[in-house]
């Protein structure tokens, strides 16, 4: 029984990591209506920045973590400036397609700059797990979970309560209307990408702490995708609930169902949950149900 509860807790924490990566999707969508397919690549780039500042430049963690976040933000800003600014005014569809090209390009760039070798990732969070009686809770996931919840609360407040957050929400509603009301679509999208890159870097730290780094790590983007859709692409708070649910179901599937069937149902179960929920609620649990007008 204790192990069962432990599996639930670990699952929920892994789910929160998915939420954090999914938050990258949602923030960019929320502020620009662009679905970023290259989110997993942003995670690797964040990972490589952290790796570079610690393992290569030899900075201490206290210095390298803030520096990495700043650098990641700059990368996000640069991507937005180089690739997306020029497309404002074009259809959202073509902006989304740019992110597909970005996916291929960023993969190549990572390979070019850092090479394809498997690299050790710095130990950012203590390796020793938290012991709760018989239960083991991985420290990186626990601290990561707390960070995720703090980030979700903070970003929800930003988007729903502050002036600049509401502006960005207006941009997501309609680019043309927003800019005709004097809101800078450009600025909004830039902020979104900076935030998205920073969130991805934090995600990389939690995900990879003490593990290894290759471009396989970008798979987390597609693991987090069902969480974003399950919650609804506009909802930041909903991500927490969606992540926890998907994480728990996945953990129980891998630990109790997979040994029975001798396969890896755990890796597809998030997609099955996502499909089921979308058929019941087409815009996820908390997504906006927009009324379309012609």
């Amino acid at each position: 029984m204790v192990y069962f509860i432990n599996d639930i807790i670990t699952g929920a924490l892994i789910g929160l990591l998915y939420s954090l990566v999914a938050m990258g999707f949602v923030v960019i969508y929320r502020a620009s209506k662009v679905f970023n397919f290259a989110q997993g690549e942003l995670v690797i780039i964040g990972g490589f920045i952290v790796w570079f500042t610690t393992m290569q430049a030899g900075l201490s963690l206290w210095l390298s973590i803030p520096l990495s976040l700043v650098l990641a933000g700059l990368v996000g800003y640069a991507i937005e400036r180089i690739f997306l600014t020029k497309l404002i005014g074009e259809s959202v569809f073509s902006m989304v397609m740019v992110t597909v090209g970005l996916l291929i390009l960023l993969r190549g760039l990572v390979l070019l700059v850092f090479g394809p070798a498997v690299r050790p990732f710095p130990i950012i969070f203590p390796l020793k797990p938290l012991f709760l009686g018989d239960m083991l809770i991985p420290m990186n996931l626990l601290i990561g979970g707390i960070i995720t919840i703090v980030a979700a609360v903070g970003l929800s407040w930003f988007f729903n309560r502050t002036r600049s957050g509401l502006r960005m929400t207006a941009v997501a509603e309609d680019h043309v209307v927003a800019s005709s009301m004097g809101i800078s679509v450009k600025g909004s999208i830039a902020v979104a990408w900076v935030l998205g890159a920073i969130l991805s870097t934090i995600g990389a730290m939690i995900f990879l702490s003490g593990k290894s780094l290759t471009f396989l790590a970008s798979d987390i983007g597609f693991a987090a995708l069902p969480v974003a859709l399950f919650a609804g692409l506009e909802s930041i708070g909903g991500l927490i609930l969606a992540g926890v649910i998907i994480g728990i179901v996945q953990s129980l599937t891998t630990n109790y169902l997979d040994p029975l069937i001798g396969g890896s149902l755990g890796s597809v179960v998030p997609y099955i949950i996502m499909l089921a929920i979308l058929l019941i609620r087409p815009t996820g649990l908390f997504g906006w149900r927009t009324i379309e007008r012609v």
């Binding site: 690739f83 390009l105 190549g108 070019l112």
Partner: peptide, 20 residues
């Protein structure tokens, strides 16, 4: 590795300069 970047770059460039 540069070759892969070329391919990605061509696609990304197309979409920026020639989204249609």
């Amino acid at each position: 590795a540069g070759m892969n970047v070329v391919l990605g770059g061509v696609i990304a460039l197309f979409m920026i300069l020639e989204p249609k």
